[in-house]
Design a protein around this nucleic acid. Structure first.
Lengths: 208, 208
DNA sequence: AGTTGACATGTCAGAAGTTACATAACAAGG
DNA sequence: CCTTGTTATGTAACTTCTGACATGTCAACT
């Protein structure tokens, strides 16, 4: 809130979630509840958070002066708060954007594959077959979303929601990769034979 | 699982890290120190942990009877402990392997792309150009590892380290995806023009 | 009239993960 | 002789994240 005694800690370190919320708020003001549903698609394909983490984080952002809150009468016992990004918040976001990320991705399905030879081959093959099918379904869904976005001109870098399109493209590639890799793994475990991996492009058909 | 029911302490819930360590121990006995270096490649491409997390986790696994420890004289002030997976531990691992994973992957580079239009286009383009180059380098490295593994017959599902090969293949596909996606994003931001995304190339051009 | 689901905000306990602190033998190079 | 790096194991403080608890309105359906 404003002026006065502020320690001008421009170095105030935000958490990754904090920056994710700031990114969402560049699309426009939102309540904590709306933010917690917006971390579903497409952002949620690569970063999620529960409301129990979002509400405290918004309070921290407000304390740092990176967002401002406006209270209105809400449906529940507490006031509804609509948050907006401040110039300070935008500056912090912009600084964070060009810092090379170091965090390596984590993938539980790949971790399980690491122990593939300890598991029952038939059961593991079934699991990875299901994962390939799920990836197939999500891929079809994402492709439709992407087509709609292109129709809306969101594939142009100047479009205010170009970032949504960029994230969705990564989602599509990830699902494509999972589809072909999981299918290859399922077929390999099922047959017990060496199967050359063909890569994601092209047909997904043989075997699985 | 096997005969009998799961009434006993087999219901002891393990953390994901615990199962990762059990997976490593199926390759043979190891010390905590060795495990912390083994979570680098190829497992570390998709799951990592610091030694400060590994040592307490090994103690928990030992308390649950999932690993056994043998102490020897060590170089430091404490005894060196070599851990081995027990039949109970293997059973727990096998049960975990066929549980469909629900955890969604997290990617900080994709999160930053979501806010692409808030950042300076030139700086963001440079960042994603560097990421594409790094992916290129890692890809070359991984391809060599994969070729060596194929020479060693690790691409056969029956090979005891087939899991290493499966994880590495996923690593290769992931780097390929990052390379093409980051290059597309860098070019888009740099030119400010709409560029159609072509997808990863070179997936099947090296003869496997 | 009662139930379900969406809207809306928060706290608390605990698990998971990171960073820093602490100790010590042994080998290699300068 | 001294410094650096590797082997080796642990603890303490802290941040991050999950799951459960807690409250209450309003609209739609049964």
């Amino acid at each position: 809130m404003g002026a006065g005694d502020g320690d001008d800690s421009a170095t105030a370190s935000g958490s990754t979630l904090g920056y994710a919320l700031l990114s969402l708020l560049t699309r426009g003001p939102a309540t904590g509840y709306q933010l917690s549903s917006q971390v579903k698609a497409p952002l949620g394909h690569f970063w999620t958070a529960k409301h129990s983490q979002i509400y405290p984080e918004l309070a921290r952002l407000a304390a740092a002066g990176w967002v401002s809150a406006v209270e209105q009468a809400g449906p529940g016992p507490r006031a509804k708060k609509t948050y907006e990004i401040t110039p300070d918040g935008l500056a912090a976001l912009r600084a964070w954007l060009v810092v090379p990320p170091v965090a390596q991705p984590r993938s539980e399905i790949t971790l399980k594959a690491y122990a593939a030879n300890s598991g029952d081959p038939a059961a593991m093959a079934a699991l990875y077959g299901q994962l390939a099918e799920r990836a197939e379904r999500m891929l079809a869904e994402y492709e439709q979303d992407a087509a709609r976005m292109r129709e809306a001109g969101m594939d142009h870098p100047a479009h205010p929601r170009f970032g949504n399109y960029a994230v969705l493209l990564m989602g599509i590639e990830s699902q494509r990769t999972v589809r072909s890799w999981a299918a290859w793994l399922a077929a390999s475990l099922h047959g017990g034979e060496r199967i050359p991996y063909g890569g994601p492009s092209g047909a997904r058909d043989n075997g699985y």
